[in-house]
Write a protein that binds this DNA or RNA. Structure first.
Lengths: 255, 255
DNA sequence: AAGTGGTCTAGACCACGTT
DNA sequence: ACGTGGTCTAGACCACTTT
């Protein structure tokens, strides 16, 4: 077995054309990512044990471990000593707060009340086509919702999703569902948001936003533009949020 | 040697009073953090090789490696194959962009021009006392600077530092220095900013800010409150920034 | 050639959770 | 008792950099 794996690494290393050398554990990691992307293991489920994976890929447990370690560091997998290694799911508080950065200035976070304002299927405009890597003419699902805390409207989210990935998504489904949106996407559409890039600005509230958020026109809002990515690192959500930040703030850690 | 280290781990594990078990590599990591905090190795310098550290701590190279791996993942150390492992320094482009989140909406980042507006030593107010864990009556260095890009004022930073750690810090020194502020703190005062927590809000420009930033009063500004920490995880900077975000935005990654 | 970090293996034992 | 992940060791070899 030692020989087999060494040969494999050496083969990759010495491949003519010098296709960039990649260590065995990176190759394993890519294979695991592929399985996750194909839904071989669903969010919340356990993946095979390290020894099983080592046998499957013909490498040592240590090599599998290093691949899994990296995926766990990226929060795609969660290790539980004595139980196994599990696929991350948005149906958990811990992971949710990685994507929900709004926190109250004082006191404990309260659950948000969500109201779906609209949910339409429209042709992608140029911005969506570019950000979501669509073809011109493709459709997107355009959702607008308002989040309130203790009855105070605080967030307007404009969410755009590729139409072909979210076929049965309707306002009714969204309204009937309580819980994290990404949890719904994950279980009902097999789309897992794994990471995101955001751009933040301060902008004045226009007439429409000021009415929805119950603030004066011109009130400074925190505008958050987010692009979310799946396992395969494909963009699948363009979300534009506008936050009222008198009682809440956006928290961030620099490491 | 194997015996020695096993005994050490076992001793820690079985210590009466059950002082929380911590694995050997975590103990090593803590020792390394202590050395960094004491300035035993300065930013930019190489730390001893893994084999040297293994000998010093009487553990295997693999255990040292795991400790160093974690510190490298936190960007406190930087590994360079064939050369050694080095202490991170703010005198490098890569690390700077971890703390400088403002990016132009279009085009390449340009270097900022910094103008020191004031630098005074004052008594810490309640807010500073709390955030910087000071005693009431302690002094802080209060700095205000304006950052401009291509002549356009874009950022006002109000920076507060514990007076006792920054004794020789004057407006002249700040003005004569070009380069990252954290680089100056690091080399001249032995204070390394290692991580930070930020809170973001959108606020209207008041008269003072509108004059300094050359925008209309009430213009939405992105307000960024930052607390920075050193190796020992002690807060040593309270910084409040106000950003004009028409040509620039704050970028963030959710992982 | 020598020294550094990087990868990979094999095996032992520990801690945790379930059966 | 058993299976899981977690820690630690020892040794081999590879890749990169400097001498």
């Amino acid at each position: 077995m030692a020989e087999a794996s060494r040969r494999r690494a050496t083969a990759a290393l010495r491949s003519p054309g010098a296709a960039a050398f990649s260590p065995l554990y990176q190759q394993i990691k890519a294979l695991l990512l592929g399985s996750l992307d194909r839904g071989e293991w669903k969010p919340g489920e356990a993946i095979p044990s390290e020894l099983e994976l080592a046998a499957r890929f013909q490498v040592s447990q240590g090599t599998v471990r290093k691949a899994v370690d990296e995926l766990a560091a990226e929060h795609l997998l969660i290790r539980r000593q004595g139980k196994g290694t599990f696929v991350s799911t948005h149906h958990e508080a811990r992971i949710r707060f990685r994507f929900l950065r709004l926190a109250p200035n004082a006191g404990e976070p309260k659950p948000a009340e969500s109201k779906i304002v609209e949910c339409r299927r429209v042709r992608a405009n140029a911005e969506m086509t570019r950000h979501l890597e669509l073809q011109s003419g493709d459709t997107v699902v355009a959702i607008r919702r308002v989040l309130s805390f203790s009855g105070t409207p605080t967030v307007i989210d404009d969410i755009n999703l590729p139409g072909n990935l979210f076929k049965g998504l309707t306002a009714e489904l969204l309204s009937s569902y309580s819980g994290p949106l990404y949890g719904l996407f994950e279980t009902d559409f097999g789309v897992s948001m794994v990471r995101a890039e955001e751009k933040l600005r301060a902008v004045p509230a226009d007439a429409e936003f000021s009415a929805l958020l119950n603030v004066a026109p011109g009130t400074p809002l925190l505008r958050v533009e987010r692009i979310s990515y799946t396992y395969a690192d494909r963009p699948v959500e363009l979300r534009i949020g506008h936050y009222v930040t008198d009682q809440y703030h956006y928290r961030n850690s620099l490491n």
